[in-house]
């Protein structure tokens, strides 16, 4: 039988990761990271937010994208669940609705990696010219 993973293996993985990270510039790390928040309340989970978050974590890991994925509560867009909020470094947060695994793939491919706009944004924190 194969050996069961333990915290010892985590320690080894950490050493590998640490070496990679120290090659990059440290400094204000959190601002340089892509931040993703998955809305994980009853409405989100019932619509498949768990699968969406699991898929995104997997994809980001496979492609070695420097991101952090956290959970957040209900943002009030229950009709458009699962919803996620993506903040690219130096940009305003953007909220996407109806993010199933296909949509998640598209967001990673286009918006997160290439910075291209993707359909399905919930207009929440946009500013009009009058606000300025």
């Amino acid at each position: 039988m194969a050996k069961i993973k333990s915290l010892e293996d985590l320690k080894k993985m950490r050493e590998d990761m640490k070496n990679k990270i120290s090659l990059r510039e440290k400094g204000e790390r959190i601002d340089n990271l892509i931040q993703i928040k998955v809305s994980m309340a009853t409405c989100g989970i019932a619509s498949g937010a768990k699968e969406t978050m699991d898929y995104m974590v997997n994809e980001l890991d496979n492609r070695a994208v420097d991101a952090v994925v956290t959970q957040t509560g209900c943002m009030g867009y229950c009709y458009a669940e699962p919803t996620i909020e993506v903040t690219l470094p130096g940009e305003e947060p953007v909220i996407f609705g109806y993010v199933d695994t296909d949509k998640a793939q598209e967001i990673i491919d286009k918006y997160i990696i290439k910075g291209e706009p993707v359909d399905g944004i919930i207009p929440v924190n946009f500013k009009s010219i009058k606000d300025e």
């Binding site: 993973k5 915290l7 293996d9 985590l10 320690k11 993985m13 950490r14 990761m17 640490k18 990270i21 995104m56 974590v57 997997n58 980001l60 890991d61 994208v65 991101a67 952090v68 994925v69 956290t70």
Partner: peptide, 15 residues
């Protein structure tokens, strides 16, 4: 164990 590596790193979540 992780020390300065964030808990919400996708690699950590998968592990």
């Amino acid at each position: 164990i992780l020390e300065d590596i964030p808990l919400n790193n996708p690699k950590v979540a998968n592990f």
